[in-house]
Every structure is written in structure tokens, then in C-alpha cells.
Design a protein around this nucleic acid. Structure first.
Lengths: 148, 148
DNA sequence: AGCTAACAGTTGAATTTGTAACTAACAAGG
DNA sequence: CCTTGTTAGTTACAAATTCAACTGTTAGCT
């Protein structure tokens, strides 16, 4: 019977991992319906697409490391993107374990389209906050995400 | 060829839904290993447990609405929690469609344990920020989560 | 009462994910 | 060369999630 002082105030809705999850799901919902409806993509797939669109030619492993996605998920996303002709796969000659991925013309078009959607969507989401608030939010989220 | 001024600066790592997801996954990881390892629970299960622990007797539907979880997910979580004797289920006499859920003694013990873990974990996560920053973060996340 | 619509919750089949074991390719030491 | 170990990526199987159809129950209208 001593320290229930701050105990009482700890609600589920204040638990950071819970809150982050709710915010992530709510904010991702609308974007999901776009990439899903427009290109039939799954989350991992647009992420792979974006990585190639932004950083250029890259292996599956690099993508997995940057985005913290398990290699089996990346592998399956790559297979689906390749089957739909959004990316090409090319074995590295010197070390045939590596496979370099690249966007096709169709892949680049899809990327540009979704990139623009994402940009506008992000702008809309952050428009409810001041620039300082938004900047702080992003930096805090990066810190929270970074601790892996 | 006109407005690529702010286009170039829009990176994947700045896209809010992406960032939120990364932060949510990273921050939830450690807590997951606890409720999973200690009680063999899934995410929906501890959420149901917490809702009952915090708000008391409640139906599956109410939980689903508060936490924005699909009813099939809640239904299965309730089944598992009831099978493990963490909760009891009782049909409402006046309207037999409703089923009221309650924590058992074991359920309340598990809730208290996990609640304390969550409290400490939250405190540790937010200790890297100032109180003002943390408060702002939570309020922004709530706004982002609220728009459903 | 009898019909229809709505509602709480469940179930089953199809997708998606997670885990672990696997293949193929290379590297380093003997 | 020939182990032994490591790495990139795949596959198989189990677990979890989604979606749609379902049961049982109540409400409202006629």
C-alpha cells in the first residue's frame, strides 16, 4: 500500500507501444487501400518497391537490413514483384549468392505514382501539426525505432 | 519539371505511416517477448486482458470497439483466455446475444503482473525524452490514432 | 403472431506470416 | 583439394490473420 500514486494514472491508452500501434494502424489504413487496390501489393511489397525506387539497385539482404524485415518476407515480396514485372533480378557475377534487384519501367512508374501519393498523404497527416511539432515527432519516432 | 523542390527531400524514413510502424514494432518487441514467454499470449490476448483489468466487466464487442480490433480476432482471443481460465464468460440474461467477460483471480494476477511490466517499460522508453516531449508525443499519437 | 432486418458472436476456407530447416555459393585453414 | 563454417536466399510446415458466410437472438413493423 505505498506507491499507487502514479499507478492509477497509467492507462492502456497511454502505454507507448499500444499508442504507437494504434497510430500506425490508423495512419496506414488509407495508404494501404491505395497500394493494395491500385497494384494488389502487400505492405512488404511496396516497401521493397520504395527501397529500390529511392536507393536504386540493391540486394534483398540490404533491403531487409534497412527496413528491418525478415528475409523470408523480403524473399516472397521479391518473388511477387518479379512475377508482376515490377522488378528484375540479376545474379552478381563475382559472387553468385547475391542477387541484384532493379525496378523495371513499370516498377518505376508504380513507384513514382505511390511515392507521390505517399508524399501528399504525409503532408495531409502532418498538416494538423505545426512544423516544429512534426519535426519533433519524426525525430522521436526515429529514436524509438532506432533502438534495435 | 517544376516542383521537384520538396520532392527530393521526401524519404521513406520520413513517411509518417512507415516511421510509426517502425517505432511501433521496435518498441513492442521487448514487451511481446514478456507476455508471450510468461503467459503464452498473443497481442490481442493481452489487450483483451488489459481492457478487462482496466475497465472491468465488458462484452467482446465493446473491447473490439475501444481497441479497434476485428470481432473475429477478439472472439478467438476470448476463447483462448477462457480456455486458460483467465476470464469467465456470462450471457446477459435480458439479451442473450451479449456475453459479459470478467477476469478470474488468475486473470487478475496476470493482468497486474503485466500491467506493472508495462508501466516500467513505458517509463524506460520515455526516459530518453523530457516530460514535455513525452506529453506532446502521446497527444500527437492520440490524434493520429483517433482519426478513424 | 409472423416477417424482415439488425446484431453479437462464431466458424471455415483462403491468405499471410513465422520458424526452422534447407540449397547453393563462397571463404579460410589444413 | 577437401573439410568446416558462413552467407544469400528459398522452401515447407505450422501458426496467425482475413474475409465471408454462418448461428442464435432480439427489435420493429405489419
Amino acid at each position: 500500500m505505498m506507491r499507487d500514486t502514479c499507478d492509477e494514472t497509467f492507462e492502456l491508452a497511454d502505454f507507448l507501444p499500444y499508442l504507437l500501434n494504434q497510430a500506425a494502424e490508423a495512419s496506414g489504413q488509407e495508404f494501404q487501400t491505395i497500394y493494395k487496390g491500385r497494384y494488389g501489393m502487400l505492405r512488404t511489397e511496396w516497401r521493397v518497391l520504395f527501397h529500390l525506387g529511392i536507393y536504386g539497385r540493391m540486394t534483398a539482404k540490404e533491403i531487409g537490413e534497412r527496413a528491418v524485415i525478415h528475409k523470408t518476407k523480403v524473399s516472397r515480396a521479391v518473388q511477387k514483384l518479379a512475377a508482376r514485372r515490377f522488378i528484375t533480378r540479376e545474379r552478381h557475377a563475382a559472387d553468385r549468392r547475391f542477387e541484384y534487384l532493379d525496378l523495371t519501367t513499370a516498377g518505376r512508374a508504380a513507384y513514382r505514382d505511390l511515392h507521390e501519393v505517399a508524399r501528399q498523404y504525409d503532408a495531409r497527416l502532418t498538416s494538423q501539426f505545426s512544423d516544429e511539432e512534426t519535426a519533433l515527432l519524426r525525430s522521436m519516432l526515429k529514436r524509438l525505432a532506432g533502438g534495435r
